[in-house]
Every structure is written in C-alpha cells, then in structure tokens.
Simulated scan of single mutants.
Amino acid sequence: MGYLLAVAAAVLFGANGSVTKIMMEAGLSPAQVTQFRLLGTAIVAGLVLVVVDRAAFRLPRRQWPVMIVLGIVGVAVLQATYAAAVQRLPVGIALLLEYTAVLMVALVAFFFFKEQVKTRLWVAIALVLVGLAVVARVWSSELDALGVVLAIGAAVCLAAYFLIGERQVAKTSALAVSFWTMTIATVFWSFVSGWWELDASVFTQPVDIGGVGGELVVPMLLPLLWNVVLGTFAPFLLSLAALRFLPATAAGIVASSEVIFAFAVAWLWLGETLDVVQIVGAAVVLAGVILAQTARAGKVVDADLALTTGPITTVRDTAVP
C-alpha cells in the first residue's frame, strides 16, 4: 500500500510539469502561474487545517523569521524558478536538474554541519556530474543556458529550504508548514507577479490541452485547478500517507521516480523527446540522486513532499507504524 501511494504521488507530480507548461504556452507568465499555485494551495491547506488542526494557525513568535525565509526562498523563489525553467527546457530535464538539491543537501551537511555521510556520496557526485554533462550535451550546447541556470537556482532554493527547515521547524506539522510558507510566499509574490494585469476572463480563456493527440480546448480554470489540487495538494497528502507504511528512505527513492514520469508524460502528451544519449545521461543522474538520497546517516530528503507543496523538513529514516 505504501509503495502504491508513493507511486501515485510521483505520477501526479510528474504530470504537473506538463500542465504548468501548457498554461504558460496559453499566455500566463511563470510569475502568474506561480501566484495562482501558491494562493490556491494556501487556501486548500488552510481549509484542511480548519478541520484537522486549528492550533496550527497560532504560529509561535520565534518561528516567524524562519517561516518567512522558508516561504520566500524555499517556496516563492523555488516555484518561480522552476516554472520559468519548465518554460525554457523539456519538463523532465528541468525537474532532473532541480532534483540535484538532494546532492547539495548531503554536501552542505558534510562540509558545513560535519555530519557523517556514507562513501557512496562521492560516487553519487561523479554520477550526477557526468550524467548532467551528457544530458546537457555540453559538447554542442543544445540546452537553453538560462533555463539550466533557472533550474539549478531552483535546486539551490530547495536545498536551502531543507537545510534550514530540518533544524528549525521540526516540531511543526508538514501541513502547517505548507500552509504558512505558501501563505507567506503568496504575499511576497503578489507584489511582482502582475496579477493586477489579469481580469476574470482569464479563467474562461480557451486552452488547448490536447498536445500531440489533437486539439482539446478547455477553459483555463481547468488546468489551474489541476495545478493546485491534483498537481500539488493531492501528491502532498499521498506522500504523507505513504510514510505511514514505508521507511523514509524507501519513500524518498520512490519519489525520485517523479523524474521518470515527468519525462514520460511530456513525451506522450507534449511530444518532448530526448535522444538516446540524453536518456542514458538522465538515467545516470537519477542513479546519482538515489545514491545521494541514502548517503546521510539516518536522514533522507523526501523531495516529493517538498516539490509538491513547498518543501517541508527532512524526516528520520525509521519505519512508521
């Protein structure tokens, strides 16, 4: 059951990159897509907290500075850079680059926090570097350079969130962290997203979601709702549910399959393809990420929870009864 829940979360999140790309191709900017996603997820998380944990709305004063940093860096900037990267890169490659945050977390934990790491980390570094060079085809520079920078910037934001969050917000529930960081990010992004330039007609604006399968026009509201509910909040809940049945390491490794699903959905739906060499490179990077995922003693970055609703703290690698 745990693996089924984790895979379902990975499928939904992997597909969401393509949904995001379709909305931007229909006319929304990365900033506007980010604004809608942040606001919608904050509202959904808040409604759930009203039912299950109203105490979460009383945030201790000492946690406000950390939450503000997490909301701005780990959610607002993360989501915006990822959306912008997806606009310029194939969906799978953008997500693959963002997943290098797992490697960054392990390196910073080792060099700056003096954590013990397993020797496989150094193998993981070599795999990721070689794999990324192959995916990017550095000998011919085929990938959009700005898109690569944006995706790596998203990885840095994600890594920063984990490194701050696991030390400062460990006693706050994942749902509460999601609500507060999303709310803070919404307020921050509202000043620069250009939402005031849109009118209500944006929700009924026709969007072709048919992809390579042919024309299928729906109102913009439909992919927007998918982006918030099925692309963000549902994977978050499924990931939490999976942790009731799986050790954190197993859940984190299954979450890495999001990259595979992102490639698959973008290929089947949007017609985005990689050549054989790039596919091999992507597989090498993913192998390195999985090794890095298991390199820290007793901890694992559950990137699935992070990338769906804004990162939450890392979790101990213990089975949940």
Score class of each variant (00 low, 15 high):
71 G>T: 12
72 I>L: 01
73 V>P: 06
73 V>W: 10
75 V>C: 02
75 V>A: 00
75 V>W: 00
76 A>D: 11
77 V>Q: 02
77 V>F: 12
78 L>C: 06
79 Q>V: 09
80 A>H: 13
81 T>Y: 09
82 Y>N: 12
83 A>Y: 10
83 A>Q: 12
83 A>T: 13
84 A>H: 04
84 A>N: 02
85 A>L: 09
85 A>S: 15
85 A>C: 08
86 V>K: 02
86 V>I: 15
87 Q>S: 11
88 R>K: 10
88 R>V: 00
88 R>C: 01
89 L>T: 08
89 L>P: 07
89 L>A: 04
90 P>L: 06
92 G>N: 10
94 A>R: 06
95 L>H: 00
95 L>W: 00
96 L>G: 04
96 L>T: 08
96 L>E: 09
97 L>N: 04
97 L>C: 14
98 E>C: 02
100 T>V: 15
100 T>K: 00
101 A>T: 04
102 V>K: 02
103 L>Y: 09
103 L>V: 14
103 L>R: 03
104 M>H: 11
105 V>Q: 02
106 A>N: 10
107 L>K: 02
107 L>P: 05
108 V>H: 05
108 V>A: 12
108 V>Y: 14
109 A>V: 01
110 F>W: 15
110 F>K: 09
110 F>P: 00
112 F>S: 11
113 F>K: 06
113 F>Y: 15
114 K>H: 15
114 K>L: 12
115 E>F: 05
115 E>G: 01
116 Q>C: 01
116 Q>P: 04
117 V>K: 08
117 V>W: 13
118 K>P: 00
118 K>E: 15
118 K>R: 15
119 T>P: 04
119 T>E: 07
119 T>D: 03
120 R>G: 03
123 V>L: 15
124 A>N: 02
125 I>Y: 07
125 I>Q: 04
126 A>V: 15
126 A>P: 05
126 A>K: 03
127 L>S: 04
128 V>N: 05
128 V>Q: 06
128 V>T: 12
129 L>S: 06
130 V>A: 14
131 G>T: 12
132 L>T: 10
134 V>P: 01
134 V>G: 00
134 V>W: 09
135 V>C: 12
136 A>F: 15
137 R>P: 03
139 W>Q: 12
140 S>C: 03
140 S>F: 05
140 S>G: 01
141 S>M: 14
141 S>D: 13
141 S>L: 14
141 S>N: 13
141 S>P: 03
143 L>F: 11
146 L>G: 02
147 G>T: 10
147 G>C: 07
147 G>K: 07
149 V>P: 00
149 V>I: 14
149 V>S: 09
150 L>G: 00
151 A>K: 05
151 A>M: 05
152 I>E: 04
152 I>T: 08
153 G>N: 10
153 G>F: 08
154 A>V: 11
154 A>F: 04
156 V>Y: 00
156 V>W: 04
156 V>A: 13
158 L>Q: 13
159 A>C: 05
160 A>N: 08
